[in-house]
Simulated assay, not measured.
Amino acid sequence: MTGVDVPQIFAVCVAEFGDRVHVVGDQWGAPSALPGWTVQELVRHVVEEDRWAPPLFAGATIAEIGDRFSGDLLGTDPVGAFDTAAVSALDAVREAGAMERTVHLSFGDLPGAEYALQLAADHLVHAWDLARSIGADDRLDPAAAAALAAWFVPVQPLYRQAGVIGEPVPVPAAAGPQARLLGMMGRTP
């Protein structure tokens, strides 16, 4: 995406998710907005992604990382686990040259900027999922939602084909960027 500060968008999206993690309170075992997942499982998913980011940005392959991030990543302090993983992911994205570096993902090699946008979108959409799960404010940063909605238009068929998002949910033509992004990601805004 030309003219987009990808590390800044990623930072905003991490903060959006983190804001919701910090207000989960005693709702860790509650069902999440994602069928079959609890709030804790949703947060664990994002923590796992954040833990994968540093080695992937450093050039490691999926095979080299192996099952390093399997199991309980949250321990007795899920908020602290998220905070620690988020800082590591932010550092990896902000590292000089990270956006131009090749990242080896399970479905192929991509530029670091593309991987960072994938991570940003996941953080932002899961911020909405988490907010819905715990009754928190579900309004997302409008600039980040707009940038990610524009990025996602051409790549959404690939995500759908890979089975990582649901079918699109139609939204009105005049819907804002948050609703457009959520609809493309299979959520009912």
Rank of each mutant, 00 (worst) to 15 (best):
T61V: 10
A33P: 00
A33V: 02
H104M: 04
V47E: 09
R94Q: 14
F82N: 05
V6W: 05
A136R: 02
G112D: 05
G135Q: 11
A174P: 00
F17P: 12
H22I: 00
P168H: 06
A147D: 14
L105D: 01
F17M: 11
A58P: 09
A121Y: 01
G163I: 05
V164N: 05
F57V: 01
E49R: 10
V164G: 02
C13M: 06
H45Q: 13
P154L: 10
V155R: 14
A92Q: 07
R101Q: 09
G66S: 07
V171L: 05
R94D: 13
G80V: 07
G108C: 06
Q156H: 13
D5K: 12
V24T: 11
A174F: 03
R44T: 14
L74H: 11
A96W: 04
I165R: 12
S32R: 07
D5T: 09
E16C: 02
T84Y: 00
D129W: 00
A30R: 13
A60V: 01
A96F: 05
D138S: 05
A127H: 02
A174I: 02
M1G: 15
A147Q: 14
R139P: 01
W151N: 06
D19I: 00
L42S: 06
L42T: 13
D50P: 00
G25E: 12
T38K: 05
L182N: 07
R187A: 00
V164E: 09
V21W: 05
Q156F: 04
H104P: 03
L73G: 13
A60K: 15
G186H: 03
G18V: 09
Q178C: 06
A96S: 15
F17T: 13
M1V: 13
P177A: 15
Q8I: 00
A143S: 11
V43M: 10
R180H: 03
A53H: 07
A127R: 02
I62L: 13
A86Y: 06
V79D: 14
G29F: 04
H45G: 08
G59K: 09
V4P: 11
M185T: 14
P189Q: 01
A131C: 04
A98L: 12
W37V: 04
I65Q: 06
V125S: 00
I9H: 02
I9M: 04
Q118T: 11
A60T: 10
G108E: 04
L117A: 12
G108P: 10
G59L: 09
A146C: 06
Y159P: 01
V87Y: 01
D137G: 06
V43F: 08
P35V: 11
A174C: 00
G135L: 11
L74W: 09
S133L: 04
S88E: 15
G71P: 10
P111Y: 03
G66P: 07
G3W: 10
